[in-house]
Design a protein around this nucleic acid. Structure first.
Lengths: 188, 188
DNA sequence: ACCTGAACACCGTTCAAGT
DNA sequence: ACCTGAACACCGTTCAAGT
């Protein structure tokens, strides 16, 4: 009962907007996360969202960046162990929000946190003994596998949460890829 | 000058509708391929499309199936050569239509032609010496890599056709994966 | 059967106006 | 600065009606 004025419903944070977007994405997938519904969830007029983000894709990119920012990188152990750890963490965080995954694969994926992960992967593969050119190819191949696997695992489970198959086949494929990369590194 | 009646603009074929959808997808990406624009391109009322397809996703699925149906499978040579040939053909056909790729990764991918390719892959990997369980994992891993690579290669190039990088790094990653799979097969 | 226009319930985004 | 309602140009989809 702060006041009776019904116009300024209280200034929303950028964080509140992203929280609302993530919630809608989780429950109803991409079509549910419209600017209008996000605004309604925050309790604000649709146009207010444009005070914080230039357009809808900017909201989606910011959300992706926030999720990628939470990924832990750079743990100890061998380069293989470190790569596996990143891949598992990435999978776990994205599978928890299946509605976000389609955005990830149809967007530019060029934010600072995406870069941070790509750079880390490249550095780890450089430490494997591969020449820089092959290390770049290997880090690209790993990113492809990780994102592809997450996409295939979640693409029709945004609501059913069927994807409880566990990371078994994910890890199997990842390790075959790493086997191939390691064998290539040992050739030189 | 067949007639002056302006209502029945001539019955469109299912094929004509898919052609129009593909054209719009190629030039303007997913948002350009709306039911209304497809209908306009064919020269028909929007509602007429619903005579042939129950909804928009059905149009998209049919288009994906048509593209996958053109993929050649089952050439001669070793299982590795056959897998590589399928992967290259799949890439070539999808990269030629970048606008279709996002649909592919956010749809069910359960049509008969998608099944045909998956079955062929599974059979080839069974011939590699892997036990059935590992062959299934390997065919899943390969599908993941192929679709993920195509997605990453095309996701921001639906209009610029930048993706002339060629299949080099695609083939490199594919071969590392096959190296790992082959090594696993030889263990048993 | 096949195709139509009108209508419904939505979109993203812009803009002039209010505080 | 920040937030608003009204408006514009779209969507997918349904439906009663025409041939």
């Amino acid at each position: 009962m702060v006041e009776a004025g019904h116009k300024p419903r209280r200034a929303p944070t950028e964080r509140e907007i992203l929280d609302a977007a993530l919630g809608l994405l989780d429950t109803g997938g991409r079509p549910a996360a419209s600017i209008r519904r996000i605004a309604a969830a925050v309790g604000v007029a649709p146009t207010t969202v444009y005070t914080f983000f230039p357009d809808r894709t900017a909201v989606e990119c910011a959300l992706i960046e926030r999720l990628l920012g939470a990924v832990r990188i750079g743990g100890g152990g061998s380069w293989r162990e470190a790569v596996e750890a990143i891949a598992l963490d990435l999978r776990q965080r994205l599978v928890a929000h299946p509605g976000v995954v389609p955005l990830l694969l149809s967007g530019p994926l060029d934010g600072p946190h995406a870069q941070r992960i790509a750079d880390c992967l490249l550095e780890l593969l450089g430490a494997s003994g591969l020449d820089p050119r092959s290390a770049a190819r290997a880090s690209y191949a790993l990113m492809v596998f990780v994102l592809g696997a997450i996409a295939l695992e979640t693409f029709d489970a945004p609501r059913a949460m069927i994807g409880r198959a566990g990371p078994d086949r994910y890890l199997w494929g990842l390790r075959r890829m790493l086997d191939g990369v390691e064998a290539e590194a040992k050739l030189h």
